[in-house]
């Protein structure tokens, strides 16, 4: 292969239903890096860059993942949803409103990732045949990949309960 190296791959990402062309990107760039630094979508937060903290959680083809652990070029055909797709500047999503009502936000850095994880939990929970209204253990497990260093999670769990209730 003579053309095996190029610093300028061009590919298209579908983010929140909109096509975005990515050019002049390095081959190993994470989806998180491309979202924040190239597509001006800074909702997913960059913290650990090793999948530990969950602050960059996004949905790729409906599956909750850490954007920092996805090579952007490998999801060129996928449906990518970020926290920017939740609610609007006029009206918050049910999950966002629940976080506000419960006071589940302190510094706010982990909040976008938590919003995505809670939305995913609710979307999947409704599909479960035996889902209990609010199962704290299941909720804690579902949010175990999202670190918050301010709240102690109590109000986050309260927000989940409110969001579940409001989603019924």
């Amino acid at each position: 292969m003579t053309d095996s190296y190029s610093p300028h791959p061009a590919y298209r990402l579908m983010v929140n239903g909109e096509p975005h062309d990515v050019s002049d990107a390095w081959i190993g760039e994470s989806l998180l890096h491309v979202l924040r630094e190239r597509l001006e979508l800074p909702g997913a937060k960059s913290a650990c860059e090793q999948g530990e903290c969950g602050s960059c959680s996004v949905l790729v083809d409906g599956v909750l993942v850490c954007a920092c652990l996805v090579a952007a070029v490998t999801v060129a055909d996928a449906d990518i949803r970020t926290v920017e797709s939740c609610g609007s500047s006029q009206s918050l999503s049910v999950v966002q409103q629940a976080f506000v009502d419960a006071g589940a936000v302190q510094c706010g850095f982990c909040t976008p990732g938590l919003i995505m994880a809670v939305q995913d939990l609710i979307d999947r929970g409704i599909q479960l045949p035996h889902a209990s209204p609010f199962d704290e253990l299941a909720t804690r497990e579902a949010l175990s990949g999202n670190l918050c260093r301010c709240t102690g999670y109590g109000r986050v769990l309260d927000a989940v309960a409110r969001a579940v209730e409001a989603s019924r």
């Binding site: 850490c66 652990l69 995913d120 175990s144």
Partner: peptide, 9 residues
């Protein structure tokens, strides 16, 4: 393994 996000990937 890891967290739900890690297990999904």
């Amino acid at each position: 393994v890891g967290s739900p996000q890690i297990r999904n990937a």
